[in-house]
Design a protein around this nucleic acid. Structure first.
Lengths: 341, 341
DNA sequence: AAACTTTTTGAAAGCCCTTTCGGTAAACTA
DNA sequence: TAGTTTACCGAAAGGGCTTTCAAAAAGTTT
């Protein structure tokens, strides 16, 4: 931890300096630079040139103080590798428009105390709103009781159903995956998933089971919960093969990698004999798979975009939804379910 | 893109409100809350209670304006998935101390225009300094000519060797990896790497070659440059086996995964017949490997920490280094080079 | 040339907090 | 009682910018 407080900033050009350099008053300089048309063209140009020469950048902090809006947003996350936070951040940036809003990214590291610290810091900096990103889809406790600015939960909802949240429709995702497998002619579908304590695992399974039922099929074997690892995917595969499954839906891309490995070891051809699909569509995981893996994309960028939009809606009082909003994931078809895709 | 400007903030308690609620003047309220001892204990308590009751959080923006330091830092990155940015951000947070500094994270997406936008936004918000994170270790053009605040380049240096930078000693990393392989008794070391146009690929190879030479060995075959993919790792393995290598150093974890796959397909036992080591130690890639992969950790957290520290050093005028600082990576030994590790 | 309109400029207030400095009331000493 | 010290409190300034409003300059009309 750094203890020495940094010295004051080196002199940065102020509006006053620009005005002086251009030989006009503060007020005129302000109007000239802000495009107010009560300024003579020649005066404006002189001011503009002075500003450019001095590298003047207006102090947004002051403007924020004046307007009561800081043009900043806080993003509080708990996911250490940024796997969810980064796409969501980028989606939010897209919604705001480049450079219009700046985002404070805070990693609370699953620590309530640290989260509280960050929250106070954000409130002190008068962010216009806060987006809270979960590290999984489980419900999480609300940030705090009384917060004077809008809060939108992204990816994981808060336990208070009245809080604004934008999340993935995991159940629908499970159903969509199964519908795709059925559409490619599969009838004996098995499901290997992750830790049953995760809401995502249960939701995906529920959607998958429902879709089977809707199609008049019964899932092959029980939902095989385990861990979100390749090792579990490998370990669970023999049992599924013994059940003579012709399709395996995996709870995550990692599990699917393990399954693909095990199938290759067992000389089972994918997708001819068995189709494999999974959840997350996490690029680095997908990249090296043989064959390339069909996966449900969770549209994290879209989640970030919607979260940012809802923040704005609440701020501007034009709210259209309230409470939890579920986004439909997107199926990305690749070679593990359709040969050559 | 959101067009409606948000309405002004809902009323947030100001110090004035607290003072009024406690029946004291502004100045007394300030002193009471800031622990100045020219305030009666009972007065202080009354003020404190009023502040708590109103949920008062002091406006950092004003304090920043007064002190000329905003207590914020900008982090400009170009890496879309946050693979480098997130660990570096967290390292920086550690250096600053939780909640003391807030970090604006900006993704420029390899777009100079966007980068310029973000830079202006950051300067306007009067960040105390900027850390620039590269998406690879190649030199990058400096942010801009005249910036009135310190800039530290992390992971990728700027083309101006006078600019402050904290990067990985890739060459040393290559050497360390080879030294480890030699220490475990290997004599016929091959190197499969990524795209030769990347500085990282060439630096790692140079270090590896030098270490071989130092040990009186010659690398088996040429450095096999290709792409940073599993597919390349698989494709390059047969040639290396034909060279009768007993160790394969891979340019990245992904390449190593491909190599491990190919070795298993060829029934070559790892690490008994061939040892495999790689670079990056990227957790999600490493997690599922069989056997677990020995890898050079690039210590990105440390890079972030040092970058933040140097920012402070420059700000406080206690700079000890200048220019480029190289951090030694860390070897993480696992089962792919040492049985049972 | 005087009276008036239009255009352009500048002085000053306000935003919220910290800090300095002057002032008041209480407690104390002579 | 008068004078002195101490403890506490509050008025006011300052920081950079925008905005309002009044004043000055320029131009137009009679």
């Amino acid at each position: 931890m750094v203890t020495d407080a940094p010295a004051p900033l080196p002199a940065q050009a102020r509006l006053r300096d620009v005005a002086q350099a251009a030989g006009v008053s503060l007020a005129t300089a302000s109007k000239a630079l802000n495009g107010k048309n009560e300024v003579n063209a020649s005066t404006r140009q002189r001011v503009q040139e002075a500003a450019d020469r001095l590298g003047f950048v207006p102090n947004t902090l002051v403007q924020a103080m004046l307007q009561g809006r800081s043009g900043t947003v806080g993003l509080i996350t708990n996911d250490l590798d940024g796997r969810f936070a980064m796409p969501i951040l980028m989606g939010a940036e897209d919604a705001f428009g480049a450079g219009k809003m700046s985002v404070f990214l805070c990693d609370a590291r699953e620590d309530a105390i640290r989260e509280q610290y960050h929250l106070t810091a954000l409130l002190g900096r008068r962010v216009d709103g806060i987006i809270v990103v979960g590290s999984n889809t489980d419900q999480r406790p609300p940030l705090a009781a009384r917060i004077p600015i809008p809060v939108v939960y992204a990816y994981a909802p808060s336990t208070d159903p009245g809080d604004a949240a934008v999340i993935v429709d995991e159940r629908r995702g499970g159903a969509m995956a199964v519908e795709h497998l059925i559409a490619t002619g599969r009838r004996r579908i098995a499901h290997i998933s992750g830790d049953v304590s995760y809401t995502a695992a249960r939701d995906r399974a529920a959607g998958a089971l429902a879709a089977c039922e809707d199609a008049g099929l019964t899932m092959v074997g029980p939902v095989r919960y385990g861990t979100w690892t390749e090792a579990w995917g490998r370990a669970a595969t023999p049992a599924v093969l013994a059940d003579r499954a012709d399709a395996i839906l995996c709870g995550s891309d990692q599990i699917a990698r393990g399954v693909l490995d095990a199938l290759r070891d067992a000389s089972v051809s994918v997708p001819d004999q068995v189709a494999v699909a999974s959840f997350d569509n996490w690029e680095p995981m997908i990249a090296g798979t043989r064959p390339s893996l069909t996966s449900m994309d969770m549209q994290l960028g879209l989640i970030g975009k919607r979260a940012a939009e809802r923040l704005f809606e609440i701020l501007s009082g034009t709210e259209t939804h309230s409470g939890i909003e579920k986004l439909i994931p997107r199926l990305v078809v690749r070679g593990s379910t359709v040969a050559g895709a």
